[in-house]
Computed example of a mutant assay.
Amino acid sequence: MISISTFSLAAIAFAFAWSMGAHYTGACMGMPYASGSIRLRPALLLMALMTLLGASFLSRGVLEQVGHGIVTDQLGMIGAITVIAVAFLLTTLFTQLRIPTSTI
């Protein structure tokens, strides 16, 4: 059975991934869409496909560096939920306010 804290961590991580996807889709496809070079649905489908492929096949180095190289101490469940929740809230806020930022 999944504990409440594990479910909370998974839910907030999913929300953060959604927020990052919205942020970077606007950053990558905003100009081509605004100029009329690409329509909305093809732009969204292209971003969804490329994001899924990139995350699936090219993110191992990032996972190893951040997961094992930068964060060396154990955060604990509450710490991890807090960090990801703050990152989600800030990314969502910056996207809504159209403030350029990087989550990398």
Rank of each mutant, 00 (worst) to 15 (best):
S37I: 05
Q65R: 11
T51I: 03
R41G: 01
T72R: 14
T72D: 00
E64Y: 08
V71K: 04
G61F: 09
L63V: 12
S59Q: 10
G36A: 08
L44K: 02
L49G: 12
G54Q: 00
H68D: 11
L75H: 02
M50T: 15
A43I: 09
R60C: 00
R39C: 03
S59K: 03
L49P: 00
P42Q: 08
R41I: 15
P42M: 09
V66W: 07
L75M: 15
P42F: 02
G67N: 07
S56F: 07
S37Q: 14
E64K: 10
L46D: 00
G61M: 03
L45A: 10
L52Q: 05
L45R: 01
D73T: 14
M47D: 07
H68G: 07
G54I: 00
V66D: 05
H68W: 04
G67E: 04
A48P: 06
L40F: 13
M77C: 02
Q74H: 12
L63M: 12
L63R: 11
G67M: 09
G79M: 06
G79I: 03
D73F: 10
G36P: 00
H68C: 09
L45C: 12
A80T: 06
L40Q: 04
L63H: 08
A48M: 11
V71D: 09
L45M: 13
M47Q: 02
M50W: 10
I78A: 14
I38D: 03
L58G: 09
S59L: 12
L58Y: 14
Q74G: 14
